[in-house]
Nucleic acid binder design. Structure first.
Lengths: 70, 70
DNA sequence: ACTTAATGTAAAATATTTTTAACAATTATT
DNA sequence: AATAATTGTTAAAAATATTTTACATTAAGT
């Protein structure tokens, strides 16, 4: 049973004062395109960046990203 | 305040029937050197591999890897 | 309709991770 | 002491992730 990584970035951005991709990118220290790519599941971020994301949103990493059956 | 990723892989291997690095590598579908490198904090794994690790140990990803202040 | 802010997307370049291969060091067993 | 199993480590190549640059699209506000 194959699994895939999904993310709740868009949801979390809106729960955090409708933070824009650009504002999130700034907070993370990456480009806006990197945020867009992660959010759109173009490719997964590094573990380090995933943890920084969790920190910015003050959430557990396993809520920001989930590993679920396809 | 800089943070770093630490891991509990060695501990988890021993809690799981003293699983060797080779056996864990086999279960993950990676090489033994990759397991050794992760365990020795040579470099962090990809997010995908971190999730697979959590699956193998049946633990939450945030227990296998922790993001802590240095 | 026009302007601005926000987002989507893609190609090429750069950076990081994983693999491969090889050998050394350690630990356990006989 | 010798052997086997496990682990440590390193270098180079391969694979994958990330950044940059650039332009297109969408949504909101005036």
């Amino acid at each position: 049973m194959a699994k895939k990584i999904i993310n709740n970035i868009r949801k979390l951005r809106f729960e955090h004062d409708e933070m824009t991709q650009a504002a999130l990118a700034e907070a993370l220290g990456v480009t806006r395109q990197t945020v867009a790519a992660m959010e759109g599941n173009k490719y997964p971020p590094s573990l380090e960046l995933a943890f920084r994301l969790a920190d910015v949103f003050d959430e557990d990493i396993s809520y920001v990203f989930e590993y679920v059956n396809e």
